[in-house]
């Protein structure tokens, strides 16, 4: 469903990705682990279509389409979702307005009827309950004044609403205490199924005990240097990235 072939990319003339190859099938859960600066977040942003990255080689095919040719909103409609490491605050736009606008924009692009206010309210209530989110979080401006945990739960809420074919979770565990981490992981696991694949990007193994991956890849200096099963995450937790030439203490 997602096929990344020898992807090269640079930022401000500096090469960040040096030939990434990765294939994710429908419903699979992949984890990419790697030290700081290895290119994990760059990969996530390029998949979502963020400006400022120059793809200098390779290709990305998603659900049969050339992903890199699509606008960010078209990628969302095609079924790609990025859970941000640092969700953006948008003062003056209520969370519920944002969610409804997003959901209906995606539904429109997918040729589905838009939801009216009542239908939306019913849907959102069911989703927020599962994530232990208060109604207050829907009334407040998007992510404004949200705690770290609330922001991440809000990301998972958006994901649950948009029901992506592939969700990319960019360091979703950063800044979360263990309770918040469990709520977020439960939200992800609830969506897990044959129609929903995940690419979990993380520095630590911690998140992967809650969202257990089918495949683990190690990204170092812009290249996947090793792939394996979930046991690879445990190994990295014990040994760090030293064997790949990285000294974490430095």
């Amino acid at each position: 469903m997602l096929e990344i072939k020898t992807l090269h990319a640079s930022v401000d003339g500096k090469d960040i990705l040096a030939g990434v190859d990765l294939t994710i099938g429908a419903g699979e859960v992949h984890a990419i682990m790697g030290p700081n600066g290895s290119g994990k977040s760059t990969l996530a942003h390029i998949l979502a279509g963020r400006d400022g990255y120059e793809v200098t080689g390779g290709s990305v095919t998603f659900a049969g389409q050339d992903l890199l040719a699509l606008e960010p909103e078209e990628r969302a409609a095609a079924g790609l979702f990025l859970a941000f490491q640092y969700p953006v605050e948008i003062p003056g736009v209520s969370n519920s307005t944002f969610l409804k606008t997003a959901l209906n924009a995606v539904r429109r692009q997918r040729g589905e009827p838009e939801l009216d206010a009542m239908e939306f309210l019913k849907l959102i209530r069911a989703r927020t309950r599962r994530l232990e989110m208060s109604d207050d979080m829907l009334r407040r401006a998007v992510n404004v004044g949200f705690s770290g945990g609330e922001k991440k739960r809000n990301e998972v809420l958006q994901m649950a609403l948009l029901e992506p074919k592939l969700a990319v979770l960019d360091e979703t565990d950063s800044g979360l205490d263990i309770d918040a981490l469990k709520i977020v992981a439960d939200g992800v696991n609830a969506l897990r199924g044959p129609d929903h694949a995940f690419l979990v990007i993380t520095h630590y193994q911690r998140l992967l005990t809650h969202i257990v991956p089918d495949h683990v890849h190690v990204l170092v200096r812009g290249r996947i240097v090793r792939s394996g099963g979930k046991e690879l995450a445990d190994e990295l937790e014990r040994n760090g990235y030293a064997e790949f030439g990285y000294d974490e203490a430095a």
């Binding site: 963020r50 606008e71 969302a76 948008i90 924009a105 958006q158």
Partner: peptide, 16 residues
């Protein structure tokens, strides 16, 4: 970008 990444078109996002 945040709004666009949620499926909201550029013009609609700017309007919002």
């Amino acid at each position: 970008f945040y709004l666009q990444s949620r499926g909201i078109g550029r013009d609609e996002a700017r309007g919002l």
